[in-house]
Design a protein around this nucleic acid. Sequence first.
DNA 1: CACTAGATTTTCT
DNA 2: GAAAATCTAGTGG
Length: 196
Amino acid sequence: MILKPLKREFFERNTVEVARDLLGHFLVRKIDENTILVGKIVETEAYCGKNDPASHASRGVTPRTKIMFGKPGIAYIYFIYGMYYCLNVVTEPEGTAGAVLFRAIEPIKGIEYMMKLRNAKRIKDLTNGPSKLTLALDITKDLNGTDMTVIGPLYLAENKNKGNFEIVATKRIGIKVGLDKDWRFYIKGNPFVSKK
DNA sequence: CACTAGATTTTCT
DNA sequence: GAAAATCTAGTGG
């Protein structure tokens, strides 16, 4: 399997487009030289910065959100509900806020390692939720700000054989505002999607 | 299977 | 001080 990182130009676009185009590509987590975890992205959500009331960046720049206004292709990781992390990748040109939340991946490589980290019994429950996948890939605040366009501990890789699949667009999950937009995308029929 | 509550701490008001 | 881009265990049908 060839794991070539996606270029920064891929992320330097409209957030909704990036969210949709990321489906089918790979999320790569390098623990060390011998341990590489790979998952196929099957579910994402778009958070469009300033004009999106559900986005953390809608209320302007704060110590936490400034990363969303920065360079595209950078990891934005935040802590939520006192116990969980969520992983995003920054989109739009520098100066414009935007990010794509990874909601679910399909485990491809390093499944046993993920099972240990998650203490899960069924593969199906390993990565089918935004905080489940950060637990399975050992993603914490330490990786906040990581450049995901170069090979490193955490990056996004191109899948040349994505194949054909149908993309479903629905309302986003777990938020109370901005529900008029269908900015959640997932691969139709994939068993690792977090929720119908 | 559907629904409810509890865990727990960063972040901003 | 309240809310938060969630998950899990527990209850009841």
